[in-house]
Computed example of a mutant assay.
Amino acid sequence: MRGRRWTGSSCRRGDRPGRRAPLGRPGWARPASPRLELLDSGLFRELREMALPYDDLLIAGSAPLCLHGLRAHIGDLDVVARGEAFARACALGEPRRAAFDDVLTVSLLGGRLEITNAWFPDLLGTPEELFARAERVRGLRFLTLADTARWKGHLDRPKDRSDLRRLARALEGPGEY
């Protein structure tokens, strides 16, 4: 890339040689949002094949970061399900107590798909409140970036700290975040 001038108009995050692009800063291109190709890939395809009612599903965990280009990939998919969707998930696997709050979870696909009946309710509120605040993309609801930052900050796990830094930059920047 030596000798080429970077204009900032067509580069995506991280495309400038030798630099990581800070999100929300003038002169840097924001990641395309939402990243719709994510919805056609691996775990989302597996979820779609289960034919659970989309109106009763909310994508949580780290997937909202991938949707907004704040993370390159996810190893598993965390889904909050209510009503009919959670009842059907329970028929596909055995519900058990989650490690947080008073939540039930069904682990499918060897643990790569976790379907819960709530997501940190003591911190984020009832599933109905989460569903009301959610971002909707191609028929699926996604946990907001603000709610994602809240639960990751609450857990304060070492593996979440880089996500929290990216979330902080995205949430403070101008534009769609």
Rank of each mutant, 00 (worst) to 15 (best):
18 G>R: 11
91 A>E: 01
50 M>E: 02
67 L>G: 00
57 L>H: 10
50 M>C: 02
24 G>D: 05
76 D>C: 08
85 A>T: 09
75 G>F: 03
15 D>E: 15
49 E>F: 08
56 D>G: 12
47 L>V: 03
74 I>F: 12
14 G>D: 07
35 R>L: 03
46 E>S: 06
63 A>V: 06
47 L>K: 03
39 L>R: 02
74 I>L: 13
79 V>G: 06
57 L>S: 09
43 L>A: 04
72 A>H: 01
56 D>C: 07
76 D>E: 07
48 R>S: 04
40 D>H: 07
51 A>S: 12
88 R>N: 09
35 R>F: 01
36 L>A: 01
89 A>H: 07
54 Y>C: 13
31 P>M: 04
18 G>F: 03
33 S>F: 13
19 R>H: 14
74 I>K: 09
38 L>N: 03
64 P>T: 04
23 L>I: 13
56 D>W: 08
36 L>P: 03
63 A>C: 11
40 D>F: 02
83 G>K: 15
45 R>C: 00
65 L>V: 05
23 L>N: 09
36 L>Q: 05
31 P>V: 04
70 L>N: 02
55 D>G: 08
79 V>H: 08
50 M>I: 00
64 P>R: 07
37 E>P: 15
35 R>Y: 02
67 L>W: 00
27 G>K: 15
56 D>N: 08
38 L>K: 10
86 F>H: 14
70 L>P: 11
49 E>Y: 04
15 D>M: 08
74 I>V: 09
49 E>I: 00
78 D>C: 05
46 E>N: 01
54 Y>R: 15
55 D>W: 01
86 F>N: 14
23 L>H: 11
50 M>K: 00
19 R>M: 06
48 R>E: 03
38 L>Y: 05
81 A>E: 14
42 G>K: 11
50 M>Q: 08
33 S>D: 11
48 R>D: 04
73 H>Y: 11
16 R>D: 08
89 A>L: 05
56 D>V: 05
58 L>N: 09
66 C>S: 11
44 F>H: 14
35 R>M: 02
76 D>Y: 13
37 E>Y: 10
33 S>A: 13
67 L>S: 03
41 S>E: 15
58 L>H: 06
47 L>I: 00
62 S>Q: 14
64 P>Y: 01
38 L>R: 13
29 A>C: 10
24 G>R: 06
72 A>L: 07
64 P>V: 08
24 G>M: 08
34 P>I: 10
79 V>C: 06
18 G>L: 10
86 F>E: 14
81 A>Q: 14
80 V>F: 13
35 R>W: 00
20 R>W: 12
67 L>Y: 00
38 L>A: 13
